[in-house]
Design a protein around this nucleic acid. Sequence first.
DNA 1: TTACTCATGTCAGGAGTTTGACATAGGAGC
DNA 2: GCTCCTATGTCAAACTCCTGACATGAGTAA
Lengths: 151, 151
Amino acid sequence: MSNGITDRTPPADVTERLGYRLKRAAATLRGAMDKALREHGLTVPQYACLELLDQQPGLSNAELARGTFVTRQSMNVVLRGLQDAGLITRPATTDHGRALPAHLTEEGRRRLAAARSVVYAIDQRMTDAVPPKRLSVLLADLDRMAETLGG
Amino acid sequence: MSNGITDRTPPADVTERLGYRLKRAAATLRGAMDKALREHGLTVPQYACLELLDQQPGLSNAELARGTFVTRQSMNVVLRGLQDAGLITRPATTDHGRALPAHLTEEGRRRLAAARSVVYAIDQRMTDAVPPKRLSVLLADLDRMAETLGG
DNA sequence: TTACTCATGTCAGGAGTTTGACATAGGAGC
DNA sequence: GCTCCTATGTCAAACTCCTGACATGAGTAA
């Protein structure tokens, strides 16, 4: 059966398929972040939102949704929560268009800084699990996988 | 700043971190599977459950939950749905212990076979996106990442 | 101007998932 | 025997997220 030509059929064992492994790694990461962030009073989408806003102040609801891989509707409730908690500000109206630019408050920056330390630790532990020389290749492969499926 | 020693601090740009890329790839895969499976009347957890049961008949609710990375409670709902749809069977009682072994019905096997084709196609497209020589290494790295975080 | 298209923000409803809790069954150790 | 400890199944409530839908604003072209 082994003829030197790459097998183009997914393994019969589900757990040997790329999709399963990808899901497993992502689920584990999600669980670790969820647990760590809970002690900081933040959910994963909330943290992701704060992180994006810190790097790109003024992002709109729709832009944040795309950046965190959720729908506009989901991001809307996240933003409302962050707004109620006083971590971000958003104008009620705007001169041009409908997009409402969001910005971090001082408190938001503080909470983000605190939460960032624990998330960094997790990301670093995970990154250390892969040989340094393979990291850039791994990142590129993950990107290709996403792009191929229309991400 | 580049001194030949591997940088041990996560990139400031969130989108350059391993966690972000991993989430992106997983989210894209989830979206593709979700869309494809909807035409077969199945959700992703339902499909995963059927696939596991096909390979390992008699798995219990808790075992299926661990295998699909959800809680027992979630899997309980999934199993109830599959049972109502006549795709699996589960005894009401058992002689030994509390674990109730689940099994596919004939209809369950048919639906799984139909759904499997579209999922295989997605998995294959994704797998083809990474150079064949790197596939086994990629799988190993994903595993290491999960194990490091306690998966 | 008008009509069309697209992106955005938002509301309503429902499906899926989680946390927290409780009762039951088996095994290990005393 | 008895007591922990663990694992399992299940219920209830809350939360998260999504699908579907609608209205608004901007740009484009007839």
